[in-house]
Nucleic acid binder design. Structure first.
Lengths: 175, 175
DNA sequence: GGAAAATGGATGCTATAGCAAGTAAACACG
DNA sequence: CGTGTTTACTTGCTATAGCATCCATTTTCC
């Protein structure tokens, strides 16, 4: 594993671990709680991407939807929501803003008039390469000091955590 | 490293990697994008914790604030926001809901009347052990199939990503 | 054909997250 | 003093996220 880089903010961390004593169980070590760490990582990731996308006039909520459309344009809302995956309600509001901002247009499917097909505008298409470059830059920031093995290991561990949480949610709800 | 468990939803994953071709750069592999993975992990973590906290009448937003207060009660809003860390605006609204729900009370600091000290109610204190048990359960779900080395490695890799993103944000803003 | 069920979206509502600007109290300094 | 700055919190606003419910269209099945 590659060397852990020493950054200034390492010195700003609380020297003693942040723990909560409790009855009938070991103290809860907040700094070791995976959920706590993951939430913080997701927020700093989002802040970093948002800062870079802002110069393109893009918001972070539109980004995953654009990923789906850059892959295949003209999908229905349901298809986009399932591909990401993302709640359909969230997608509806995000598409409202994206339409307002001239990134996409909605078109009724003439074959099945319940469906709404989402199409990129020229503007939405033109943002593909600069937006993906922004994402590359943020990922590179996060992975600074990582060698290829570290990055692969991180992806694998995260994938296993997602699988564990999704799997047990499924079994719980189907019981 | 421990065996990767085979869960049903592994079979539901897109067989071919989700990639976006582009000009003048390698295709963007969405499934390998760390930001994409981390966002998804954070959302499934939040959903799992929210489901468990709901039976206690707790919302997920209150949880980190309670962590701060269970560690030390009677802190000011600023102190809580810095400890987590969390935007002060978000904290104000969260405390509004927590006060409404009877988890905390606000009291002006008599020594410095600008400050508002946050105190747990009996109810807020009583939820400590069951809420921490819920967090333990979610973390255990996420880490199912992980041996101790995997879990330690995951925490270290996540910590390094946070450090990389925070560090470069600092240097960018102080330039 | 026609009623019931399923499907695809939209809407109302609440919660979480954070930026910009405002208010009130405390502090710094002449 | 008093006035300008800083600090602590609040408010207004927008965006992101998702649950419950509703509406229009299509499909199923008799």
């Amino acid at each position: 594993m590659a060397m852990v880089p020493r950054h200034p903010e390492s010195m700003m961390l609380d020297p003693e671990p942040w723990t909560i004593p409790r009855d009938s169980a070991e103290p809860f070590v907040v700094d070791d709680s995976m959920g706590f760490l993951v939430n913080r990582l997701a927020r700093v990731f989002a802040a970093a991407l948002q800062a870079r996308l802002a110069s393109l006039g893009l918001s972070i909520g539109a980004f995953p939807v654009l990923l789906a459309l850059w892959t295949r344009d003209g999908r229905s809302q349901r298809e986009i929501a399932e591909a990401l995956p993302m709640d359909e309600t969230t997608l509806v509001r995000t598409l409202d803003r994206m339409q307002r901002d001239g990134l996409v247009v909605r078109e009724r499917d003439t074959g099945d008039r319940r469906r709404v097909l989402i199409h990129l505008t020229d503007h939405g298409r033109a943002l593909r390469d600069p937006a993906l470059a922004a994402a590359d830059a943020v990922n590179a920031q996060a992975l600074s000091g990582f060698d290829a093995a570290d990055a692969t290991a991180a992806r694998a561990l995260i994938g296993r955590m997602i699988a564990g949480l999704v799997f047990q949610a499924d079994t719980a709800s189907s019981r």
